[in-house]
Simulated assay, not measured.
Amino acid sequence: MADEGNIITDLGNDDTVRPNGADNQPAIGLISQYIKDLSVENPNAPRSYQAGAQPDVDVQFNINAGQIDGEVHEVGLKITVTCKVESLTSYIVDLTYCGLIGMRNVPEDQAHMFLYAEAPRILFPFARRIIADAVRDAGFPPLLLDPIDFQGIYFQQLQQRQAEGESPFASEGNA
């Protein structure tokens, strides 16, 4: 039914008036992303620039997620890169890159998968660029990290937890 151009919705037996956007549908969104911690070390400069051998690069990463407030979660992607040439450390880059994720009406298993697989996939390209720039700014060729299959790793860890008899969906923590 309409009244002078205004649309009036018949809510049936429900007398509740809902403002625009208020619903019970699942919703997930990236609110913000930011560098939480960044450390770049070049402990053996200037000797580290004189090494001629092939560098040995070790990349470690960890995913951490936790609820901040109600529907807001923080996902942290921690990446540590250590480069050595002939047992001499050339550089160390330690980055914690985070995103604030808003979630509403999402089942626990899907929320967990989003926080530990999809959110890191969204954050990774930005973290990758920061690391490449940090290595370049330290005086070395930029390091372009290979893509990471976060979903594959998530499912692998999920299967491992189930095989060990643990709860597959830890509400908060590390992956």
Rank of each mutant, 00 (worst) to 15 (best):
F126H: 15
E108S: 12
H73W: 15
F126S: 15
L123M: 05
R128I: 09
M113G: 11
E86I: 07
I92A: 06
T96L: 14
H73D: 09
L100H: 13
V93P: 05
D109Q: 14
Y91H: 14
V81T: 14
K84C: 06
T80S: 12
A111L: 06
I130F: 02
H112V: 05
R121F: 00
D94L: 01
S90C: 13
A111N: 03
T82W: 00
R129Y: 00
T96M: 10
F114I: 14
R104H: 13
E118C: 01
L95P: 01
Y91G: 09
G102V: 04
V135E: 04
A132P: 08
E74M: 05
G99T: 09
M113S: 13
K84V: 06
T89N: 09
M113W: 00
H73R: 02
V106A: 09
D94I: 11
V135W: 06
R128T: 08
V93M: 01
A127G: 11
C83Q: 14
E86F: 01
R128F: 06
T89Q: 13
L100D: 01
A119K: 03
T89M: 12
I79P: 09
E118M: 02
I92H: 07
Y91A: 07
D94M: 09
I101C: 11
K84D: 13
L115V: 08
R104P: 00
K78D: 03
E108M: 01
D133Q: 15
I130P: 08
F114Q: 05
A132R: 02
M113R: 15
A127M: 04
A119T: 12
V106C: 08
R129Q: 15
